[in-house]
Design a binder for these strands. Structure first.
Length: 496
RNA sequence: GCUCCGAUAGUGUAGUCCGGCCAAUCAUAUUGCCCUCUCGAGGCAAUGACCUGGGUUCAAAUCCCGGUCGGAGCACCA
């Protein structure tokens, strides 16, 4: 009875559904299969988040395989390989092995040769347009019945580079009359004249298509569970034809829908972001307005917050909208404890800071470093002759305001008159509590947000905060210190 | 045109396989109250959903059929 309850509890510990047929395998083996054609955006984080979580759950094995077999249309970006591995690490996972498809071309050739020998593939010189028509009509092309010997010879000529791009392809012989046109005699290899950007692969001209390459690799690396997008739904069906020729067992496969992210104006697409960055409309992949991993990272969002949010989305085949607020909620839990508090008075146009001489004030304010953690002590915010308030916080004439950590003040003439430190003013009489900064001794700050840069001044103690630290500007929000300097300190705004 | 897939509150998700315990779970969001020297954290409460029409059944979110809506593939992209 007790054991029942306990095991139930454990089962409900994570929101991901069980992987299918896990018991049939010695070990759950999965792969991330990124295309290194650019750094990662937020949507790409779903793959390592979910697969990595499954890996931890089942004590499994995880491969990172770069599917970089298209040197032209989805040309690999040489920097992206490491950027992607970085992103995976930031999310808190580590692949057990990393391979690149472009290192394995000979392996694909070998399997193509074997497939040809088995009568499972044929070289085809039909123009793409013509074949498309034949396929639509369920009609075989004249090349389909070539004998394997001729096919083998022509394939070697493809490998040798005897054909130009578009002249010859190798097709897998499936079922030309299959009711699903997507599965009919698909292309396994084609010629690409553009050299691969990786030096090691620059000489190859005959490249496998994803369905072939990925199918071969999944088997050779012992993948037991494939998790990928619905755009590849028919891939499994196509690849099964190859698996059947080789008498291989196809892995378990799960397809999920697309993810949309709210809160961004910029479309979440590698090519779109790439264009905007190149055009200078975004300062980079880490511009706060960019829905990219590098951007969230720079804002101080923990990888774990992204993972939690992604895992919550589950693996349904429907398209889903990820609310950034969900990422923020997770992140708040992760960073609140470490985030020391500071005052930042924003001085931007339209939000002009107001300077007030203070009368009879104590020499300094001493708000807590962290309200829940008393052992962190208190801050020391000098007052000087005058202080700054944000426009929205300025009390009406004769009204009072509580300067946090300092005391109660009344707005008289053009000054703030100290009227005491009896907290009843706040708790009993409803005097608003606001943050403030000394007008003289302060730290200029540039806060970079999703809506543009905001300038302001922080209390002097903020000068001691190191780069990469997460702080909370009271009543403004959490931010990551990005750069400290004489002129100004740059911080990236995370969220409220 | 052909072939697949999906549809639970604003968002995501549980439940659907094996119909009843579901006037539907949890999280997030929003709002209100409490607490707090932050608009953060914490506490409490409220809001809000089974796409639609039939059928089977004592009983349907769950099974069956039709429809609607949405998505994906039919690339010498991944």
């Amino acid at each position: 009875m007790l054991a029942d309850i306990e095991s139930e509890d454990e089962g409900d510990d994570h929101p991901l559904p069980e992987l299918p047929n896990v018991e049939e395998y010695d070990q759950v083996r999965m792969r991330l299969a990124p295309n290194p054609n650019g750094p990662w955006h937020l949507g790409n984080a779903r793959m390592p988040s979910v697969i990595g979580t499954y890996k931890d759950l089942y004590d499994g094995w995880m491969l990172c395989r770069f599917d970089d077999t298209d040197p032209e249309t989805k040309r690999p970006d040489l920097d992206a390989y490491d950027q992607i591995l970085d992103a995976i690490e930031y999310l808190g996972f580590e692949p057990d092995e990393v391979i690149r498809a472009s290192d394995r071309v000979e392996t694909y050739y070998d399997h193509a040769r074997e497939l040809i020998e088995l009568g499972g593939a044929y070289t085809c010189s039909c123009p793409a347009e013509e074949f498309r028509q034949l396929k639509a009509d369920s009609e075989a092309c004249p090349h389909r019945d070539k004998d394997p010997k001729t096919v083998a010879e022509e394939f070697e000529r493809m490998v040798e580079g005897d054909y130009d791009s578009g002249e010859m392809v190798l097709r897998v012989k499936t079922d030309i009359e299959h009711k699903n046109p997507a599965l009919r005699d698909w292309v396994a290899f084609r010629i690409i004249d553009t050299p691969h950007p990786r030096e090691e692969a620059a000489e190859y001209r005959c490249w496998p298509m994803l369905d072939f390459q990925s199918g071969i690799d999944d088997h050779l690396t012992g993948i037991t569970h494939i998790i990928r997008g619905i755009d590849l739904q028919d891939s499994a069906k196509r690849q099964r034809f190859v698996y059947d020729y080789f008498d291989w067992e196809y892995p378990e496969v799960i397809h999920w829908g697309h993810v949309q992210i709210d809160a961004y104006d910029v479309k979440m697409s590698t090519s779109t972001i790439k264009e905007l960055v190149e055009a200078g409309d975004l300062s980079g992949w880490d511009d706060p307005r960019t829905p990219a991993i590098a951007s969230l990272r720079r804002r101080g969002i923990r990888g774990g917050a992204i993972v939690d949010a992604m895992v919550e989305l589950g693996t349904s085949t429907s398209n889903v909208d990820l609310a950034m607020s969900s990422v923020y909620a997770r992140n708040r839990e992760l960073i609140d404890e470490e985030a020391d508090r500071y005052f930042l008075v924003r001085t931007d146009d339209g939000n002009v800071a107001h300077e007030f001489p203070v009368i009879d004030a104590p020499g300094g304010g001493h708000p807590p470093v962290h309200p829940e953690l008393e052992d962190r002590g208190t801050r020391d915010v000098p007052v000087g002759d005058s202080i700054l308030l944000e426009a929205a916080d300025v009390p009406d004439r004769e009204d009072r305001v509580w300067l946090k950590g300092l005391g109660c003040f009344r707005h008289t003439r053009e000054a703030l008159q100290y009227v005491g430190d009896d907290i009843d003013a706040v708790s009993e009489e409803g005097v608003p509590v606001v943050h403030w900064a000394p007008a003289e001794e302060n730290v200029p700050v540039r806060l970079r947000t999703m809506d543009g840069d905001v300038t302001g001044v922080a209390e002097p103690g903020f000068a001691d905060v190191g780069v990469d630290e997460i702080v909370q500007f009271e009543r403004v929000g959490y931010a990551r210190v990005d750069e400290t300097g004489e002129e100004e300190t740059v911080a990236y705004f995370a969220h409220e």
